[in-house]
Design a protein around this nucleic acid. Structure first.
Lengths: 342, 342
DNA sequence: CATTAGCACTCATTAGCTAAGAGTGCTAAC
DNA sequence: GTTAGCACTCTTAGCTAATGAGTGCTAATG
């Protein structure tokens, strides 16, 4: 459908625009070494490319800029995954600093990713999926206050303080915690609620009198629904992009970033592999001039988490795709080794 | 030094400018009900106020805007602390949601504070000062990995994962943790290092053979220096302020916000009470067009933490000062009750 | 003598105009 | 199929004039 030459010209225009953020004219294209045609020829192809919807003009006599469809074509056909720089070793470097808890590794990786790319990085942590319960603990601080602590096999620790009403005896609570520890060891977090409500609750009565109220209390402390945790890096990088010179755009960008639930939704329903959502392809008006590009990392064929970058549609796709691909592989490897050792 | 009338005019100008963000002219002042003089009279006083440095012009024939000195005078003489709205009950409302861990209360309060004011709120947490060690725990995840958990009497939980080298025996580690728990219970966190290095280290040898290496390891995990923790609310509120229509200013604002160490320094060396730093009074170029206003909350005459708001120099001082004063009192009360119960 | 009316003056803002320049689309020639 | 040539479009920058908000100063006023 597209001629060889049109393809070439499309590629050159998009590459150029990504670099300069300025509309690209026929003359400047014809000057490139790879182009051996006159500006007039280029103009003809540009007009065709515009007719097909791959390019746009900012005004009737301006140079061309890529349309969303143009970027889409560019990503699908002109950027090859083979260019992947494997072995980027972000995670490896992070881990050499002696960190090893997943939460910290992820946070750190997000920061490095945003530094390398100058976009905003978002990582959806892995704990939601495969992590298992290692231990529950209750530490009483005073007769009326206590802390509930939950530890997973990945080294993740959740805690929540709560106050104990007078009518509840802390020793009852401790008994219950012991039972829970016995019964829930090794249970994946996602099955915790289920297991709790079916098996465990029935056992409880025989050990603790009048356990109902205490149990309800503990349940709220330990098993409050776990909101998805997002890790960000480079939240202010967007301020560097020329297309965000307008405060209004910055505002709308941040309104999206702050809405973590919404963001998590956008990240979650992804197929595996690299996923690129350009402009309006994101079902979110606030980032209709942004590209959200994401990759999943996984272990054992189960999706585990997502790494993403959010930047202007004029994104350095080539670099970013290679980078994300490399990083997701690396994280999958880390998860694999991890699991082998634990 | 200032006549009655000049005082009144200064106040009206600043009030007006705070509200509208527009230079104030003599005509609009003369229209106010409280002003019973002609524009010409007002103009004369405005010229005097400008000579004295309280007002400025944006250009030779513009209305006046307050100078930093003007704001300073306004804050020192024209805003009275008596207007305090006591009983603002931010914290009380937060706590009614069932939260009670200090960290969460503080975080939540910061958010509410920024919502009420539309500025960015910054709270310097209290844990650095009076909190005591409640319990240390070590949970082994695998033969080579473990989590160190530290719990304070305020319900604060710190944790840190670490990997255990082969040459170290986890049972040794556990022994050491037990000893530490015995000896360090109730010790204020700030004295932890000291106590550790003097008393405790000497005891260790008699219980555990070859403890040195293991101990060093644990020490790093449990007692890594605790960076000051800042809680933010409304980080993007600044985008609403008309004086931050310029991206450059937004950038410099965020460069300050991101530099938490620097911010913490600015907040720390404060006398008690309410502290207002206007524009260049902040020793930081990045916020030379901002006001940082802070209040300390305390228990038992010791400074405990700081609540602050960061916004443009054109700040609603009246409202903000009353609010911060109320909130700091409230937090002090909470701390007091807290301590009584624990 | 403090206050005020009057008036000339300043400066930002806006609109309208022009010239330059970048880039296009089309046609005719190669 | 490709390209040179050219008329045309639109942005940008610079200039001018008109408008209007606001000032500073002077002289008149109660």
């Amino acid at each position: 459908m597209l001629t060889e030459r049109q393809l070439l010209i499309l590629q050159v225009i998009i590459d150029d625009f990504i670099e300069t953020a300025q509309p690209v004219g026929s003359r400047s294209i014809a000057k490139k070494e790879t182009i051996r045609y006159s500006p007039a020829t280029v103009r003809n192809d540009m007009a065709d490319l515009e007719d097909m919807g791959f390019l746009e003009k900012t005004h009737s006599s301006s140079g061309r800029i890529p349309s969303e469809k143009g970027y889409r074509y560019y990503v699908d056909h002109l950027v090859s995954l083979k260019e992947t720089m494997n072995n980027i070793k972000i995670v490896e470097n992070v881990m050499q600093e002696g960190l090893f808890e997943f939460e910290q590794i992820v946070q750190h990786s997000a920061e490095i990713l945003s530094e390398i790319t100058n976009y905003t990085s978002i990582i959806l942590g892995p704990e939601v999926f495969e992590t298992q319960l290692k231990q529950l603990q209750m530490v009483t601080l005073s007769p009326y206050t206590a802390v509930a602590i939950l530890i997973t096999n990945t080294g993740h620790v959740e805690h929540r303080s709560f106050s104990v009403p007078e009518e509840i005896d802390t020793s009852d609570l401790e008994k219950i915690v012991n039972i829970l520890n016995d019964r829930l060891y090794g249970v994946p977090l996602i099955h915790l609620h289920e297991k709790l409500n079916t098996e465990v609750i029935n056992l409880m009565g025989s050990y603790v009198n009048d356990f109902e109220k205490s149990f309800q209390y503990l349940k709220a402390a330990f098993f409050s629904d776990n909101p998805v945790k997002l890790y960000f890096g480079g939240k202010t990088n967007i301020l560097m992009q020329p297309e965000f010179n307008d405060i209004e755009k910055v505002r709308s960008f941040y309104s999206m970033i702050e809405n973590e639930d919404r963001l998590a939704d956008l990240l979650k329903n992804n197929a595996g592999g690299i996923n690129v959502r350009i402009g309006h392809e994101n079902q979110a008006d606030a980032i209709k001039e942004c590209t959200l590009i994401s990759a999943t990392y996984e272990w054992d064929e189960e999706q585990m988490g997502t790494i993403a970058l959010l930047g202007p549609t004029r994104m350095e796709y080539r670099k970013v795709i290679a980078l994300l691909n490399g990083l997701s592989n690396e994280m999958s490897n880390v998860l694999y080794k991890w699991h082998k050792n634990s």
